[in-house]
């Protein structure tokens, strides 16, 4: 049966919206439970069995709260910022291949699409910080920009390395080229570049920084900047920022899975399918949470030094190494 394209797109849109909503709601629960586990507490237990209904209760609470727009703010931009942060995060999901057939829109430049829309979230955070007219928010926004600009460079360099190995910008094809056992995955593709595992680690670190997660959570440094750019937001405006943060984490981990861990392919060649993709993606998401509750926040200049003095030279080196090896041994 052939479904007309517009209906298929509409279905994909609803599915993506549902996936993002469910993930944002339940990753908060997972995060709180995991944090409690790392700190030997119980975490949320009151609402539902094991606190499973806690996200719903939180959503109702956030939606019933009054949205306060402080005087002196740029009202239009203040209200627009949560929308502007959510939309690009959702756009990335339009091209992510969950399995060979399960991709909302299979375009030739899907890799570029994810990074193009991924680069928009900085602007939304900045507008949020600027329009709040709050000193903590502005300091936080300025930090976020320098952080994101610094980490976008090694991330894109690393992605170019993968791009040169795969010779395509189509995410579905990138995954298709990693078929047949875990030794074919890009992360273990040592023939193309012996430093490929290092490349994966660089990508993961940059992903943590780009999504403003601890130890790089300069956007919302609770102990020093109240709540950073989110200080003036109340109710669902605040909630949307959190949904966007989790949507970005899911998109980032999905990209790491697609680019390095073989997407929907099984490590041993058995039963390839969307479940492998989800398994790898959720393992990475768990790692993100694990890192957050294990490492303390870095200092700001430590963060910039890490990017400019270590990650950028290293990713440049892997880029040159890969192109050299491809030139010598390629084809």
């Amino acid at each position: 049966m052939i479904i007309p394209e517009p209906f298929r797109l509409l279905t994909s849109l609803l599915a993506v919206a549902g996936f993002i909503g469910a993930n944002a709601a339940y990753l908060v629960w997972v995060e709180r439970k995991a944090a409690a586990w790392f700190q030997r507490r119980a975490g949320p237990t009151e609402v539902g069995w094991g606190g499973l209904l806690q996200p719903l209760a939180d959503a109702i609470k956030l939606m019933s709260k009054q949205i306060i727009v402080p005087p002196g703010t740029d009202r239009l931009l203040f209200c627009l910022a949560p929308v502007l942060i959510m939309v690009p995060a959702a756009m990335c999901f339009a091209v992510l291949p969950f399995s060979a057939a399960l991709v909302p829109r299979d375009i030739n430049v899907s890799l570029l699409m994810v990074f193009a829309f991924g680069s928009l979230n900085v602007i939304a955070v900045m507008l949020a910080g600027w329009s709040s007219r709050n000193k903590y928010a502005i300091i936080s926004a300025a930090r976020v920009v320098s952080q994101n600009v610094a980490y976008e460079i090694p991330m894109l360099l690393v992605v170019i390395t993968v791009l040169m190995v795969s010779r395509t910008m189509n995410l579905t094809e990138i995954v298709a080229k990693q078929a047949g056992g875990f030794w074919h995955w890009n992360v273990f593709n040592l023939a193309a570049n012996p430093l490929m595992p290092v490349t994966f680690v660089i990508f993961f670190i940059c992903m943590l920084a780009e999504t403003n997660r601890a130890p790089f959570d300069m956007a919302e440094a609770e102990s020093e900047l109240v709540a950073g750019v989110f200080t003036e937001y109340a109710g669902m405006g605040f909630g949307v920022f959190f949904m966007a943060e989790y949507a970005n984490i899911v998109a980032g981990c999905a990209m790491a899975t697609i680019l390095f861990l073989g997407g929907w392919h099984s490590p041993i060649g058995l039963w390839p399918g969307v479940w492998w993709f989800l398994l790898k993606m959720y393992f990475l998401i768990f790692t993100v949470i694990w890192v957050r509750w294990t490492f303390p926040r870095t200092q700001f200049y430590g963060l910039l030094n890490l990017s400019w003095k270590i990650l950028i030279p290293l990713s440049l080196f892997t880029l040159v190494l890969t192109s050299g090896l491809l030139k010598i041994f390629g084809r």
Binding site: L112, F115, A116, S119, V122, I123, A141, A142, V145, V149
Partner: peptide, 17 residues
Amino acid sequence: ILIYIGAVCVTIIFAVM
């Protein structure tokens, strides 16, 4: 999108800040 919004506009806003 990547260059004009992700890079140029971000740089301009940073200067404005």
